[in-house]
Nucleic acid binder design. Structure first.
Lengths: 221, 221
DNA sequence: TAGATTGTTAATCGATTAACAATC
DNA sequence: TAGATTGTTAATCGATTAACAATC
């Protein structure tokens, strides 16, 4: 349960908890749409193939009210708490740099906005792309990035350029005041202390998966 | 160092180690191309912003020879060991289901093949897509998936369909003998014990990033 | 040699799981 | 009531970090 001192929420979810919350949200949302009124941590755990204690702990962390033994949590309240906790209610602005195929995919994905992320605009150095509208988003030239960030105070930058350009884009972003970077380029970024980076890293994922498969096939494990 | 009993390698890398290895590989590869002959774990750690002990441990795990104090590891040998360990040398086949924009992106990405993953063919239920060639890959109708998997013995399936269709595609795959699933749909999959699943989950990543940013802005942390 | 770098053993940290009393 | 479900405390597990002797 969230405990409040003044207006400050003090439940600090771990990274791993945090990455499960959106899954709970979308699952419980589905139940709501099916007309359910209550949901138990146990049921969620079973549907999502997770340890029940884990789910219980996660949910009790974000819920504003205690769950009722034997019934569980009221879905409407719980969804509210989840979306509040995840910041789905208040919208963060972001910019995206690198309007290649991945960049376009992200720019045009409408689901991010329901998760509180509004990608305001894309930047690209290719003059052929500049001025185009992709989805409903305009593509601006790289030269305008600095003034854009400074004018709007946007804090989140998404990098979808090729790996060899990622560091330089990152440096520019940081220079202009971006505080959090979502990096889709396959390279680790060097950032000053205090700048947040979240890497999306397909080669790493693939390595884990294919190694596990190899082990399995070899019966090592 | 890899120790061998008969022909069986017994270093079992943890998931977290495994997901760092591709980063080491690509970084050290870059050094090789710049003409370097030796690399130290310490140097890699510094470039990638990682703890030196961690890198040392990871590298000593995969390297076939011991690193030389004061010099480090011979780059050519180390890269060989890394790519051997990661299975970049031997190619795994995979199929992909769901040829939307993300599916296309993955189908046409040429980098996977250098990482030992060959996406042989795509499947889609949309008759307009069937028969097309995207990149160099053919799109087949869903009905042919079963016979394709059984004929070729392919073991890896990539799911890029919308969330609400993912479970059913997954079930079909498992039914036909797929053992490892790379899931890009935003939903957790229920699979029988023993089937491997690796989820790519953007909403989860976003949740982590934006929460961290919020904490930062609130000076909670 | 002196110092950088290695590999390993022990300590720490964080997250998951197990155990259990409390409650509707 | 009996039993499912809750929240919490303690035990376990796994990964990272610290400490240190060995080596070129």
């Amino acid at each position: 349960m969230i405990r409040c001192i003044g207006k400050c929420t003090i439940f600090a979810a771990s990274k791993s908890t945090l990455s499960r919350l959106p899954l709970y949200y979308s699952h419980i949302r589905k139940m709501q749409q099916q007309g359910e009124k209550y949901v138990s941590a146990a049921a969620v755990a079973q549907s999502l193939n997770l340890n029940p204690v884990l789910v219980r702990k996660d949910l009790s962390g974000v819920s504003s009210v205690e769950g009722k033994p034997r019934a569980g949590f009221e879905i409407d309240t719980l969804l509210n708490d989840l979306s509040e906790f995840l910041g789905y209610n208040k919208v963060d602005e972001a910019i995206l740099v690198g309007v290649g195929s991945l960049g376009r995919l992200i720019l045009t994905n409408t689901e991010f906005s329901s998760m509180g992320l509004d990608i305001a605009v894309g930047f690209d150095k290719d003059p052929d792309l500049v001025g185009l509208q992709i989805g409903s988003k305009y593509i601006l030239p790289m030269e305008k990035m600095e003034s854009y960030i400074k004018r709007t105070g946007v804090k989140i930058g998404i990098i979808t350029v090729p790996a060899d350009q990622a560091q330089s884009v990152c440096d520019q972003m940081v220079e202009c005041g971006i505080l959090a970077i979502w990096n889709f380029a396959f390279t680790l970024l060097n950032v000053p202390k205090g700048i947040l980076v979240k890497n999306e890293n397909l080669p790493s994922s693939l390595a884990v998966l294919s190694q596990q498969l190899a082990n399995k096939l070899n019966n090592i494990k």
